[in-house]
């Protein structure tokens, strides 16, 4: 059983923290992981992507093959579209709807949402709003991690919480709690969408 995840966003939006949280949880569950990151030039406000692979068997390639990603987890809607060739037919897109506009030819939000809704399996939430409502604007990446939780095979919410606690323990209990709350908020919202 493997889960191949494309994590997409803009440099500085915190996709490496999402990757680290999932990665730590996977290791605690004694799974294999490989995680290819974007460092260097593109981190300066450019498009960034991380290939995160989790499996109960050894993993060879650091990169995911086209058409084989189980999940595109995007903290920015335009970035969700950038990696469509990687998505498997059965795969899901879980994306934030708040645009990060730092280029002159950024499309309108309507155009982007129209394209997103043409995809077969889409979960779209306004993570920035959810985070703001929680009083922690910076935690929108963790809201997105919560939103994607139901698609992470063999990693449940408890494992994610433990992963977060390990990652943020040095920053104090308050930071851990804020991030755990953000995950819960994201997960609850998406679980509700699936019940409806």
């Amino acid at each position: 059983m493997k889960t191949d995840i494309i994590l997409a966003g803009v440099g500085g939006q915190g996709i490496l923290s999402i990757a680290a949280a999932i990665g730590t949880a996977a290791l605690n569950n004694e799974l294999y992981i490989k995680q290819a990151e974007t460092h260097g030039m593109s981190q300066r406000g450019g498009a960034v992507v991380s290939h995160l692979r989790i499996s109960d068997k050894p993993i060879y390639s650091d990169l995911i093959s086209e058409g084989e990603a189980d999940l595109i987890l995007a903290v920015e809607p335009l970035e969700a579209l950038r990696y469509l060739p990687y998505l498997a037919t059965k795969g899901y897109i879980v994306t934030n709807t708040t645009p990060f506009v730092n280029i002159p030819d950024y499309p309108t939000a309507e155009e982007i949402m129209k394209q997103l809704h043409q995809q077969t399996h889409l979960v779209a939430i306004d993570a920035d709003k959810v985070a703001e409502d929680l009083g922690n604007k910076l935690a929108s990446n963790m809201v997105m991690l919560g939103a994607a939780a139901r698609f992470l095979n063999h990693i449940d919410l408890t494992a994610l919480e433990k992963g977060i606690a390990e990652l943020f323990s040095r920053k104090g209990e308050e930071v851990v709690k804020a991030n755990v709350d953000a995950i819960h908020a994201g997960k609850t919202l998406v679980d509700k969408q699936f019940q409806d």
Binding site: G45, L81, L84, P85, A88, N102, E111
Partner: peptide, 14 residues
């Protein structure tokens, strides 16, 4: 998978 829609503009570093 599906092609990248043409509206997806490049986002170079800045």
């Amino acid at each position: 998978g599906n092609d990248v829609p043409s509206l997806v503009a490049n986002r170079p570093p800045a």
